[in-house]
Amino acid sequence: MQRIKLIIAYDGTNFCGWQLQPELRTVQGELEKAITRITGTSVRVHGSGRTDSGVHAYGQVVHFDVDDTRVTVPWQRALNSLLPDDVTVLDAEFVTPDFHSRFNALRKTYTYTLWLENNFFLPWRRHYVWKCGPLDLKAVDRSMQFFLGEHDFAAFQNTGTPVSSTVRTIFDFKRYPGQSEHEMVLEVCGSGFLKQMVRNMVGCLVEVGRGKAEPETVRLLLQMKDRTAAPATAPAQGLCMAGVYYGETGSGGTDTGRNQAHNSGINGEV
């Protein structure tokens, strides 16, 4: 058997998330259908992490195994000819048998895009941004700094996926301009992310930016470890899985996405 690693991008608008679900359209399901059409046998695809319904990706990493007879298949071109328009393969390569898209990952990066204008909204951006309105960006910047480092993120985890620990490390958290002057992108890189953790962090930052909470609120919530005390979860459509980093010894792994991103193999993603 040969192991293949893919980097994929998808528009999550019309998907019920990444993971297979009976009778529902998922990214994993579409990929497995396309691969099966090429191999003639059922193939299981393993992703670097899960994304919820409506969440996008341009750096999702997956792997799967095929028979040695399929090594000559031009996998990127073949899959893109079979996949629907809202998912595409950005890169395909053979990797060593010990490579695992989830367990070998070292860092992950996610982005979240905000629409900062209240007076109008570009309708074609509705599936890719959160129309939150104007924010105090200095307060947002101060708040982001409290997330950096190793913390217990229990206050920023939604229920649904059991984990052995809610401690994670955030390596970088920054913002930069979006596609227009009315958009802002938040980018976070961490060792792993709990269920809807990024969306919960963004929800808190927006509350601070609106003046409904103080920047110190982030530090207090991290200390309290109480999800019920934290602001509401940000909408799914602004979130995008930007990339995964495996390092030089990651059995063929490389940087993917806009920046390095890290996940130490823990499931229960944003």
Rank of each mutant, 00 (worst) to 15 (best):
residue 7 I to E: 13
residue 7 I to L: 10
residue 29 G to S: 10
residue 31 L to P: 01
residue 33 K to C: 04
residue 34 A to Y: 01
residue 40 G to C: 15
residue 43 V to M: 10
residue 44 R to Y: 08
residue 47 G to W: 01
residue 55 V to E: 00
residue 57 A to D: 00
residue 58 Y to E: 15
residue 58 Y to K: 12
residue 63 H to L: 05
residue 63 H to W: 02
residue 65 D to E: 14
residue 65 D to L: 05
residue 69 T to Y: 04
residue 72 T to M: 09
residue 73 V to K: 07
residue 79 L to T: 01
residue 82 L to W: 05
residue 84 P to I: 06
residue 84 P to V: 11
residue 86 D to Q: 14
residue 94 F to Y: 15
residue 100 H to C: 04
residue 104 N to K: 07
residue 111 T to E: 07
residue 116 L to M: 14
residue 117 E to T: 08
residue 125 R to H: 15
residue 126 R to H: 11
residue 127 H to I: 06
residue 127 H to Y: 12
residue 129 V to P: 00
residue 130 W to F: 09
residue 143 S to F: 13
residue 152 D to L: 08
residue 153 F to M: 13
residue 154 A to H: 10
residue 158 N to S: 15
residue 160 G to S: 09
residue 167 V to P: 01
residue 167 V to Q: 12
residue 168 R to M: 06
residue 169 T to N: 10
residue 169 T to Y: 13
residue 171 F to V: 04
residue 181 E to L: 08
residue 194 L to E: 06
residue 194 L to P: 05
residue 195 K to P: 00
residue 198 V to P: 00
residue 211 G to M: 10
residue 212 K to W: 07
residue 213 A to E: 01
residue 213 A to F: 02
residue 217 T to F: 10
residue 218 V to F: 07
residue 220 L to D: 15
residue 223 Q to T: 10
residue 225 K to I: 06
residue 226 D to K: 10
residue 237 Q to Y: 03
residue 240 C to Y: 01
residue 249 T to R: 13
residue 251 S to M: 11
residue 254 T to M: 09
residue 254 T to H: 11
residue 264 S to R: 12
residue 269 E to C: 15
residue 270 V to C: 09
